[in-house]
Every structure is written in C-alpha cells, then in structure tokens.
Amino acid sequence: MKRRLASPSTLAGLLTLGLLGAWIASGPGCAVVEKTSDAMADATKGSSVEGIFRGTARLAESSRDYSTSEEHYIGRSVSVQILQRYKVHPDRNLQDYVNLVGKAVMAAPEVRKTFAGYRFIVIEGQELQGVSAPGGYVFISEGAVRRAKDEDELAALLAHEIAHVSLRHGIAAVKAATRQKSLALLAQGAGQVAGEVTSGDTKQLVELTSVFGDAIEDITSELLVTGYSRDLELEADLNAVKYLRSAGYSPDALKSYLAGIGQAGGQGGWGKTHPSAADRIEHIESEGAPKGSAPGRDVRKARFQKILGVK
C-alpha cells in the first residue's frame, strides 16, 4: 500500500511549530517570543508558516507577564497580608543569621534576582510554615527553622522558597481574568508616563488599583489557603537542590530535612499545602538531582547550634 506523505510545506510547518513550542517551553520570555515571532512572520510572508509565526506572536502578547518592578509592588502587598496574620520573630540575631544563610544561597547564579533583593523573615509559631511572596519576600516559621538539624538543612529550606520566587510561582497564581484586566488597562495607558497623574487619569488609577487588589487576593489565597500545585512544589525542590550545589551548600540537605520532618510524624501547617515528604524525596531521587555533602558542614552545624541555642 502506498503511504501518503505530508507535503514539504506541511512538514516545514510542523517542524516550525515543534521548534517554537520547545523554544517557548524553555522560557525565553514572552517579549522575546512576541518580537521574534512577529519578525519571523514578516520574513516568511506569503509562505505556509507565516500564520504560525503570527499566531505565536499574538499568543505571547496575550500572556504577557508582570514586570520585575510590578512583581515587587505586588510582593510587598502580599507580604503585608502575611504580616497581618503572623508576627515577626523578635530575635534579631536569628533574623540576621537566617538572612545571611539566604544571601549565601543566592550566590548560586541560577537564582533570578528581583527588583529590590530577597528578604528572609522568621515568623513566630512552631508549625512548619514557609511562604514566599513575589519579589523575594520569604517567610519561614521558627518551627520550620528549628526542625533543621544544621545550617545546610536551613539553607535547603530557604532554597526551596527562593526557587518559588525565582521561578515566579507566586506571580503565576494571578488568575487569567485579573491578567486580562491588567493588560487592558496597560493598553489604555500606553504612552502615559508613570508619575504623571492628571485628573483625567484618576479613574484609571482607581481601576488599576482595583485590579492590583485582585492580584493580591489571587496570590494570597493560593499561598495561604490552597497552596501551590504538586508540580510546582516538586519543581521548586529540584531547583533548590541545584542552588545548594552552586552556592556551596550540601545538595543532599533538602532530602535530609524532608526525611526529618517526615519521621517527626506529620507536617503541621505544611500538610495542607505541600506534597508529602516521602513523595518529595522520591521525586528528588528519581530526577537524579545532585547528591552529597559539601565541605565544612560541621563548621556550619556548630554555628547553627550556637545561634539557635541547640546543644
């Protein structure tokens, strides 16, 4: 039987579509996709693949994300919502120590930097809590810190939260409806310059603030009530292990931290929002994440125990 072959133009289209899909999946940024796809559409005008490029450009435009500075302002207000619910731990030495460990993890160049840098805030409470707001505001409960056996495990805990920020998981929680409203207002304001509010702009500012409030609500709800999806949690774990290795901490510290909270019988506050420790450990192992203990772990453990008053 004679097999019917796809035409060369169809094959070219399929090849192009596949390459574009892989390219977008690799995360080059919507603006890059939009700009280059538009240019490619112009370059291939009249050919069978022009429509594919043109469609890709429109897809990128409709899913445009919030900018680095917008992420910062969203993150500040989400953080305020968290601070409405939890108290900042009063021990400044503990806060400084946790911040320095976080800054050390950020030596990993894979960590995406934010508009105004990362901050690590220990909140009161013995439940296991870890919440990261967009823009780099990381909240960790004292209970979660104390469950670590050494500095490398604390670094692992922070690396997981840093990964959520770096991978923009919080921003991804903004619902499609909110994004569409944001885009519409941005389009209305095209050509306007920040800082110049005239009386005619007041309505737009109020509308923009309303959408801003919606975005805060979308994210806060996901962070504090429903939690991220299992896939996002596991993605944060794998990236955390990479950060640990690049920063000079022990790559296996996340697994040992998870093993510790698993053995301790339950996960308290985390139980509602995170996959089980066993599930997370299995995923880290199945993905062949880096392993091993970094030099100097005992030195860091002694420092950890001194700061936390552990004998």
């Binding site: 900018s67 500075s69 917008e70 920040a194 923009l208 603030t209």
Partner: peptide, 19 residues
C-alpha cells in the same frame, strides 16, 4: 520619572499608595 521615556504605568508606587 518623566525622563524615563519607556516608563508606562503598571503596578507601581502610585498604585500601591492608592491601595
């Protein structure tokens, strides 16, 4: 700010102040 030619109004300090 008015000299930052590419600045378009998104979520920014003005919006936070209004919020």
């Amino acid at each position: 700010v008015t000299e930052q030619g590419a600045a378009r109004r998104g979520f920014n300090p003005e919006v936070e102040a209004q919020y």
